[in-house]
Amino acid sequence: MNKSGVILLSNNWLFNDLPNTMILTTKDVLIMKKPILFVSHDEDDGMWQFHCGEDVDMDNATLVSLKEIVDYDISVTILNDLPLGWIAWRETESSHWTRQKN
């Protein structure tokens, strides 16, 4: 069980992308432990981005595996079917996600 109270079995991977797929996030999320409030699934290259909702400065950007992000916040697995070219956001860590074509 993780901090969200969700149980995820290791053999129950929900994303189509592999756990070792590299994604873009920020040091705000990884080091400062800010919640993930914005997600994009880029249409041009299929890259996933997980951010705290603030503007991303490239000096603050970092690459990690998709599994690392899921381990950090299992609630993002609900976005496993987010289509290419779409974004999702929420107001707080406990809010529902809103989705929209980017």
Rank of each mutant, 00 (worst) to 15 (best):
A88F: 05
C52F: 01
R99F: 01
L30R: 11
D59I: 00
L84S: 08
A88Y: 09
C52E: 13
T98P: 00
H51I: 05
P83D: 08
D17V: 04
L37W: 12
I78H: 03
D59C: 05
V6D: 02
I7D: 08
V76G: 02
S10W: 02
T77S: 11
D17P: 11
K27H: 12
N60Y: 00
N102C: 12
V70Q: 06
K34M: 10
P35R: 10
T92E: 09
T92M: 07
P83K: 10
W13D: 02
L82C: 06
D28G: 12
V70I: 14
W48S: 05
I69C: 09
M1Q: 07
G5T: 08
T26G: 10
L66K: 12
D59A: 10
W48D: 02
N80R: 14
S95N: 04
D59S: 13
V70L: 06
L30K: 11
N20D: 13
M32G: 00
D57Q: 06
A61T: 12
A61D: 01
R99P: 04
V6Y: 13
V56P: 05
V56T: 14
Q100T: 08
P35D: 12
R99C: 12
Y72E: 02
P83A: 06
S4N: 15
K27V: 05
D57M: 01
